[in-house]
């Protein structure tokens, strides 16, 4: 978690893209950032982007950290996750393995962030390839439900379907979490312990 509180007038929301390699994290990011679909695949190491957007009439900055899906980088994923305020957990609906991997990502994020209610979206990408679908919709929704009702959205970086939606939905969640936190910090600490449940059981 960032130590410095955002001092500038524009609030900065830090979003992290997670998911297995080749599911389209970078494609989604680039589509959101530059409105373009990148055909050729080049594995990402770790790239970050910043953009000013208007979220419900308020100008905010989004900081997207596009992480590497490849296993080589698994060891330092913790380090990346620590800096995130919200997560887009991406898999490809044409690849069951990538869907199975989301479980691991989810667990890792919860462990690192130590917070069950961290802003989180489960994203099924490549929905334009519905004829090659390997992961049934019901299964995806069930998983999202099982994770405490995180939203599940299907996107296509190619057709731009729901691309803005996932980023903006996540930013809204982050924003409401931030306001919630600041009111709680000033108010009662009772609810806070509730949210830190996981931590308590661990201890």
């Amino acid at each position: 978690m960032s130590k410095k509180p955002s001092t500038g007038p524009i609030s900065l929301h830090k979003v992290i893209m997670v998911g297995s390699g080749g599911v389209g994290k970078s494609a989604l990011t680039l589509q959101f950032m530059y409105d373009e679909f990148v055909e050729d695949y080049e594995p990402t190491k770790a790239d970050s982007y910043r953009k000013k957007v208007v979220l419900d009439g308020e100008e905010v900055q989004i900081d997207i950290l596009d992480t590497a899906g490849q296993e080589d980088y698994a060891a330092i994923r913790d380090n990346y996750f620590r800096s995130g305020e919200g997560f887009l957990c991406v898999f490809s609906i044409t690849d069951d393995e990538s869907f199975q991997a989301t479980q691991e990502f989810r667990e890792q994020i919860l462990r690192v962030k130590n917070d069950e209610n961290i802003p989180f979206l489960l994203v099924g990408n490549k929905c334009d390839l519905n004829d090659k679908r390997k992961v049934p919709l019901s299964e995806c929704q069930a998983r999202a439900q099982q994770w405490g009702g995180v939203p599940y959205v299907e996107t296509s970086a190619k057709t731009r379907e729901n691309v803005d939606k996932v980023f903006f939905d996540l930013m809204r969640e982050i924003r409401s979490r931030k306001t919630e936190d600041s009111t709680k910090a000033s108010g009662r600490a009772k609810d806070k312990s509730k949210r830190r449940k996981l931590k308590c059981t661990l201890l």
Binding site: S2, K3, K4, K45, A46, D47, S48, Y49, R50, K51, L65, A75, I76, D78, N79, Y80, R82, S83
Partner: peptide, 27 residues
């Protein structure tokens, strides 16, 4: 080094040739 991660900050986001080193006490 085990506890840090390096991010390439893409151009056109306002800064050139920059990297972000994520450490356990911030970016």
């Amino acid at each position: 080094t085990k506890k840090i991660a390096v991010v390439n900050i893409r151009e056109l986001t306002g800064v050139k040739n920059a990297i972000n080193i994520i450490t356990n006490d911030g970016n």
